[in-house]
Design a protein around this nucleic acid. Sequence first.
DNA 1: TTAAAATCAGTAATCGTTACTGTTTTATTA
DNA 2: TAATAAAACAGTAACGATTACTGATTTTAA
Lengths: 129, 129
Amino acid sequence: MNLKHSRQRDSIKAFLSTRKDHPTAEIVYTNVRQSFPNISLGTVYRNLTLLADLGEIARLRVGDGVDRFDYDTSPHYHFVCSECGRVMDLEMPLMEHLTEAAGKSFEGKIEGHVTYFYGHCNKCIQKII
Amino acid sequence: MNLKHSRQRDSIKAFLSTRKDHPTAEIVYTNVRQSFPNISLGTVYRNLTLLADLGEIARLRVGDGVDRFDYDTSPHYHFVCSECGRVMDLEMPLMEHLTEAAGKSFEGKIEGHVTYFYGHCNKCIQKII
DNA sequence: TTAAAATCAGTAATCGTTACTGTTTTATTA
DNA sequence: TAATAAAACAGTAACGATTACTGATTTTAA
């Protein structure tokens, strides 16, 4: 299966590159439709999955039942607002030692960890006040 | 809305208390059916959600699209086998400092974190060899 | 024992995602 | 440039986990 070029895939990737808010497939879909009015949701899903498998984008799961996608594939942590569901990047160093620490007391091979933080984002705190 | 006693709910909780492997709703369903052959899957879901909301059990999400449930509500970490999907408890101390570290560089309030580890469990390693 | 409310079983609906199908694009080779 | 094979497409159907609905049954308290 050789990869062929596709304008739809380009457009999906181009859109993702403009966003830092980790959009869902649905959001990618509604936005890419501005350039490709006939694009199908299935095409969006297929290409997001393909790009993620190729390592060109990252797939994010933060427990709300919806997959999100990130143009920034460098390892970093995320924050999820419990109020509005927004997902934001965190500027903090990677905790590689976590994986080691977990391995100490475990029979089997630990290869990595998934972590996200939750709480209330700035905007939601101000709304409540 | 006052809570009323229900034998089905008792049975669900009793089953969960016997298991350390974080069963899914489907697994709870097939097992509780041995005592309640007519119990409905909806009843299982409703009661699992209710018990989780009451804090009597914990709901677990490890990114495989299926909710799991844990009778042990004390905070602890989990391991997920990438091969067979098994979810196991990890005997390691809580990393409370993670939440602090994340808060340092973030405008908003961080209240906690979700972490799980992945890799290959003992059984799957032995199968491969 | 009765009556109101919670819970139930059974089933339909929802939602995110994946799979299918016949058509269109892309890339290659002539 | 034209012909061809394979990849990708649009549109739609199917899927799996979960939730919502409905009329019947249990529970609890009076």
